[in-house]
Write a protein that binds this DNA or RNA. Structure first.
Lengths: 132, 132
DNA sequence: CTTGACCTTGCCATGATGGCAAGGTTTATG
DNA sequence: CATAAACCTTGCCATCATGGCAAGGTCAAG
């Protein structure tokens, strides 16, 4: 299987497959005589794993850890759970930060009448120190 | 006022002040004979505005627009409100995306007993197509 | 044999920020 | 005054994950 087909099958772009190989996230693939990378179903499976982890917001470094756990049939499920929980905490922090921004912005926007008049509490709120 | 003091007063690092100047977000400052950038209170005010907008998650390009609205005493408050509301929608989308990741991950983590046993639904969930 | 679809490598760009290096300036201190 | 510390300058590199483009090689179908 060439890289293009592999990309379509896994949902990871050819560009990214090469990149993952380059940074050592996946092993170097075998090559045809003329240098084309060759993949099999197991590779597609692995790439799908990576793709799903990316979709869940794991960084490539975290995925590197997940993969080493995935590869290790002896590892404790607690190890994986710890990684997942750390990532959940990370997501929580990001969600909280965005929610706070949102709340501030909504409050400013509500105070703005939003008509033809130039007077605007949003810009004033940005110009003055936040009260909270 | 030198750039270091300006940075401390505005909460924008000296590095970023130079960067904002470089990309044309702020005007080039005056310089001393020996080339040191010089700032005044108005510059600090402007930088604080930028800082707060960054804290609210506006991109530098959006801030560029905000600044041109800020500079224009004739503009309608509706213009500002539109920008703010578009950004709120953007925040909403990001919050929703992160929340979805979180929910999926929490479900996987809950199914994982997290003990010494190697069996782990988290890795299985990543390896198999998501059901949702 | 030509054309088009595919592959290769490698460099550049994104966005916002930090770091470092090599060098010039200013200020404070001995 | 001399020197050191603290500051400034520019410029390049790095981050993180990804896309784009270019120049060239390969393969399959017509």
């Amino acid at each position: 299987m060439n890289i293009g087909e592999t990309a379509r099958a896994s949902g990871v772009s050819a560009k990214m497959i090469r990149h993952y190989e380059h940074i050592g996230l996946i092993r170097e693939s075998s090559r045809t005589f003329s240098g084309y990378r060759q993949y099999n179903e197991r590779d597609v499976h692995l790439l799908r794993f990576i793709r799903r982890a990316r979709d869940l917001g794991f960084s490539l470094e975290q995925i590197r850890q997940l993969l080493s756990l995935w590869d290790d049939p002896e590892r404790a499920s607690a190890d994986v759970k710890h990684l997942a929980e750390a990532h959940i905490a990370d997501l929580d922090a990001r969600i909280a930060a965005l929610s706070e921004m949102r709340a501030t912005l909504v409050a400013l926007a509500q105070a703005c009448h939003g008509d033809h008049r130039p007077d605007c509490p949003i810009l004033q709120g940005l110009a003055a120190p936040p009260d909270s």
